[in-house]
Amino acid sequence: MKDIYIFGASGYAREVALLINELNEFSIKGFVDKENSNAVVILNNKSYSIISENQFVNICKNNKPNAAIAIGDPMITINIINKFNNICSFPNIIHPNTIFSGKSILGKGNIISYNCIFTDNIKIGSFNRFNIGVLVGHDVTIGNNNQFNTSCNISGNVKIENNNLFGVNSVILQNIQICDDNLIGASSLVIKNIKKSGTYIGNPAVKLKY
Rank of each mutant, 00 (worst) to 15 (best):
D181I: 06
N182M: 10
Q147R: 06
N110V: 13
N144I: 10
I80A: 05
S104Y: 00
T141L: 04
N153W: 08
R14M: 11
F166K: 08
Y48L: 11
I93C: 04
A186C: 13
I194E: 01
T77W: 02
N110H: 12
P74F: 11
K196P: 00
G137M: 07
A9T: 08
C179D: 10
N36C: 12
I50P: 02
D33N: 15
I94Y: 06
S47L: 13
I176H: 09
C60H: 01
I111R: 05
N21Y: 02
N38I: 03
N38F: 12
I20A: 12
N163A: 08
A68D: 01
N169C: 05
C88Q: 10
I59N: 06
D120Y: 13
F148L: 05
I76A: 12
G156C: 14
N193A: 11
V171Y: 01
Q177T: 15
G167Q: 05
V168M: 11
V134S: 00
S89H: 14
N92Y: 06
G30P: 03
G167F: 11
K29T: 03
V206S: 06
T141N: 12
P74T: 06
S52M: 05
N44P: 05
N182W: 09
S101D: 02
S47I: 13
N145I: 06
S101T: 10
D73W: 07
A67G: 02
N63S: 15
L208N: 07
F26I: 05
N92Q: 06
I132H: 09
